[in-house]
Every structure is written in C-alpha cells, then in structure tokens.
Design a binder for these strands. Structure first.
Length: 482
RNA sequence: GGCGGCGUAGCCAAGUGGCUAAGGCGGAGGUCUGCAAAACCUCUAUUCAUCGGUUCGAGUCCGAUCGCCGCCUCCA
C-alpha cells in the first residue's frame, strides 16, 4: 500500500506521488527566532520529523529543509526593547532552538536556511514579480498585487470578496488592494536594512519562504508543512508569489498540523499560559512529549494537560523498561543465527512469528494512512506485550531466542521513525554509581537471606526515593533508573 | 458575517457502512514475589452529544438541534 497524505490544497487524502521518482523534497516552516520555541512549535516539528523519517524508512531519498526566520517585526521589537542588536537576539534563540529540537529527538534537517542569508535571492524574486507586473513599488515598499493571481485564496478556501467584507484591520493606503501584502519593507529609523533596487529595507515575511524553498528544493517540489495558522495568509501568499513568478505548480502537497490548547484554553502570551519546550522537558523528557503527541493524529487539536502528560510518561516508561530488558536478555544470549526459518518453528513459535508479521504490516499501513501514529503506536504496544511474554521466561528455546532478536530488529526499525526510545539517554550511571548500587544490593541480599525484611526494605525504599528501582528475581536482583 | 474542525469508556484516543467498538493512562481482581517492583492474565462503552431519516444493516451516510474549538494579515 502506498503512502497517502491529507493535502490541504484539495482537502482530501491523496496518494503520494513525488515530483521526481524516489525522491522527496520537503520544506518545513521553521521558527521565528525571537523567543524560545513553545510546545505548539514542538508538535509541528515532531510531526515533520516523523513523516520525514518514515519516508526514509519506506525508501525515499528525502531532502528536508527547515528555515529560520531571523528578520521580522517581532525580532526588531524585542531588540529595541532590550537595547541589543537583532543579531544577538537571533543568535541566542537560534542556538536555543537547536538545543530544544535535540532534546525532542528531532533529527537534523539537511539545511537550515536563514532569511538574512538569502536577501539576494529574495531581491531577485521580487524583481521577477515586478518585471511581470505581479508586484508594484510605492516609495521604498514593494507590494504583491493580489488581483494579478487568479487562484488567490485557493489554498485557504477564501475568496477575495469575502475577505474584503471581513477586513477589520486598517488598510494601508499605499496598497492598491487591501489584501496586497509586502514583499519588501522600506527601512524605518533604527531598523536593520539591506540595499535593494528600492532603497534600504528588508524582506517581507512571506517572500523568504518562497525564495529559500525554491533555492534548495526547486521551483516545484513535493511537501510544504506547518501549523494550521499558516494556511492563511502565509502559505496562500507563498503560492501567489512563487507561482506568480514561475508559472509552475509550487508545491504538490500542503500539510498542516492541528493546534494545541493548554488545559482547555488557547495558548497565548496574554493568558499567561505560554509553555516553552525547555520548561516542559525539565519535567517530561523528549521521548514522553513525542509519545504524547504521536498518540493523537497530527491534524487533530490537542489539549495539553498535566494528566495527559503523566499518562504519556507512564506509557513511555513501559516502553523504556521493555526495551532495556530486551537488550539485557539479548546480551546474555550471545551470537545467534539471524535468519528465521518458519518451517522449523513450533506451534507457539509460529503463532508468535505470524502475529508479528501481521502487526508489522498493520503498523506500516497505519503510518501510510496519512500518518496514523495513534494506530501505529497501538500496534507497537501489542508487540511489546507479545515480546514481554517471552522475556518473562528463562527457559527459552533456540528459536525463541531468534524470535527475540527478530522482535528487537522490528522494534528498532519502528523506533527509527517514531523515536520513542532515546538510545542516547542513560549514561546517568557512572562507574561509581554502578559500584555503589551493586554494593547495596549485595548487602541487602545478605539481609534478605537472614530474613531481615525491615532493613532490606529500607534499602530498597531509600534507593527508590533516589530514583533507583530494585527488582528481585529469585536470588538475583536487578536495578534500573526510574 | 465568511471558511473549517470537533463531540466515542473515569481520562486520552483510533475506528467513517457489516465479525465480539483498537491502543494508552487510571481502577478492580488474579499469577509471580518474603513483601514489593516489573511482567503476564481477567474485568472496566449492549454503546458512540440529542432527535429524526436513508439502508437488509450506521459512531460510520443525510437533515435538524445542542455544545465546544480554530482561522479570517505576520501565533506552529
């Protein structure tokens, strides 16, 4: 079954057919680096990350580009308020952005173009639009003439007349049409500016994405993604600019993720419930946030609640405990034949193998159905349960050991795009910690042998309070971090 | 006003015409354990906001009603 994606442009689920066979050119609208990224940004970037990784997994050669908007009103405002340069603002928050997406387990994009590094390309594109009368200059400003683009409003399902009727913002008198938008903004005192044919100024917001996406991915490419709020006007305007200039289809598939609320309320700075990623990952690690988001469909609205995050944390812990245990058991098994010959399996082994094969295809199918991660994850939990049954036994047959290897292989495959287990994590246990915990376990087991339960329980409880969990298995005791 | 989305168990959430309505969290009981923990097993929606309609058959399609939410100039 092929991959299907919901295309905002057609409002339907469509079979994904790339512009160029086997390749995917994917542009994700990145952050404006004027503040720490918030939890809503995280959702969008996680969704993009999972889709990109899944496409790789099913064999596409994916080029993933995520831009950084490093010049705009909000950045200028903040720099003026703090009395520092715009560069010091954008540098600080770009760095923070990279740190944050790293804690969320998001893979590096192939390119992170910045608007200020592409002013030249932006100017070329604007000149092209002026040259064919799609844009006009008024003083030091340049506007896009919406009336010159027949399909304006197609993506967002709006028609210009309705918009005109609903316009509630004071119209800039320099514009010919109220919905014309700025491609180039004349410099105001104290603002950063670049030289251009229209004098000193800076790019409008929308034009950077057109210029940079086309530079890195070509004039016609596969996927352009972002939050639902970007549909209008941002992406609408990008289409107008790009197709107005090239006369070609700009983007084949437009993908938009749903919005997020905080405890039932819209997230807004004015409500004081703005939650940054770095604030939340202090309490819930990146893998928990990923699971929280991926247990819902990317296009649905989400309510971020503490109860919900805690549920995700429990579920995430279950996956982690499972995975660690699987690795531990496999570590004791040693080398084993990799290939499974279904003919040599016993009845119960065959049952395990067959159900796994079914689950594998169910999982891939769910992912292929417009990234149905909730279903994919439900299958993953089914796999965990089946494998746990084997893991709890200590009289494994050779075939069953092979099945465990096979289970891990599959789990790793799925984790390669879901990213629910962070192999980089751990490492909290230094040699010293390991030695100390081992010593305590030995002492406790001596006490247990003498049936001194009170003292031995005290050791276990105190360690638990410090985040070290002890698990007794007959005479052996294992430990792990909570 | 225009456009769009949603309402499924205590909570979260799949399912868009047809076997017993996925999965996670939480809860109850059980197996294992000295007791735990982890894991496993059983149970936890005769019912999908409400009311009509179409159909042999509807969370699933159509209509109405109620409730919630988003976008409509720079917030993902």
């Amino acid at each position: 079954m092929g991959l299907k994606l919901h295309n905002t442009f057609t409002r339907t689920k469509e079979e994904f057919v790339p512009v160029e066979k086997g390749k995917v050119k994917f542009y994700m609208c990145g952050p404006t680096v004027y503040d720490y990224i918030h939890i809503g940004n995280a959702r969008a970037f996680i969704a993009g990350d999972v889709l990109r990784r899944f496409m790789k997994y099913i064999g596409y050669d994916v080029t993933y580009v995520l831009n950084l908007t490093d010049i705009d009103d909000k950045i200028i405002q903040r720099s003026q308020k703090e009395g520092v340069s715009t560069e010091s603002i954008t540098e600080k928050f770009s760095k923070a952005f990279f740190e944050d997406i790293d804690t969320l387990g998001i893979e590096k994009a192939d390119a992170y173009p910045r608007a200020t590094e592409h002013v030249e390309e932006i100017i070329v594109l604007i000149k092209r639009l002026i040259g064919q009368a799609s844009a006009y200059q008024v003083g030091g400003d340049v506007y896009y003439d919406v009336s010159k683009f027949a399909n304006y409003g197609k993506l967002s399902g709006k028609n210009i007349d309705d918009l005109r009727a609903g316009a509630r913002v004071a119209v800039d008198e320099k514009k010919r049409n109220p919905h014309d938008f700025a491609l180039w903004k004349n410099q105001k005192p104290g603002e950063p500016a670049w030289e251009s044919p229209w004098g000193m100024g800076r790019p409008g917001w929308h034009i950077e994405c057109s210029a940079m996406s086309m530079k890195y991915l070509g004039e016609s490419f596969d996927i352009h993604a972002g939050g639902q709020d970007l549909i209008f006007p941002h992406h609408e305007n990008e289409i107008a600019q790009s197709e107005g200039a090239t006369k070609q289809k700009f983007v084949k598939y437009w993908l938009h993720n749903g919005f997020l609320q905080i405890e039932g309320e819209k997230m807004a700075k004015s409500l004081g419930n703005f939650r940054t990623v770095r604030e939340i990952v202090k309490i819930y690690p990146g893998r928990v946030l990923r699971l929280f988001f991926l247990q819902k469909h990317y296009r649905s609205p989400i309510d971020l609640t503490d109860q919900g995050l805690q549920a995700a944390a429990s579920a995430s812990a279950r996956l982690k405990i499972f995975y660690d245990k699987l690795n531990k058991v496999l570590g004791t098994i040693g080398n084993i034949r990799k290939e499974i010959d279904p003919k040599t399996l016993s009845k119960s082994e065959t049952k395990f193998f067959d159900s796994f094969e079914k689950m594998k295809s169910a999982l891939t199918e769910a992912m292929s159905d417009d990234l149905n991660t909730p279903v994919a994850i439900s299958v993953l939990f089914d796999m965990v349960r089946e494998t746990n049954k084997l893991l709890s036994r200590d009289d494994l047959t050779e075939n069953e050991k092979m099945l465990l290897v096979y289970s891990k292989k599959n789990f790793d495959d799925f984790n390669s795009f879901l990213g629910l287990i962070d192999s980089k994590e751990e490492s909290v246990d230094s040699k010293m910690v390991d030695a100390l915990v081992t010593l305590l376990i030995e002492l406790r087991n001596e006490l247990r042998a003498k049936k001194e339960w009170e003292l031995s329980d005290k050791i276990r409880d105190q360690l638990n309070a410090m985040g070290v969990v002890l698990e007794d298995k007959g005479r052996e005791t294992e430990w792990r971090l909570k």
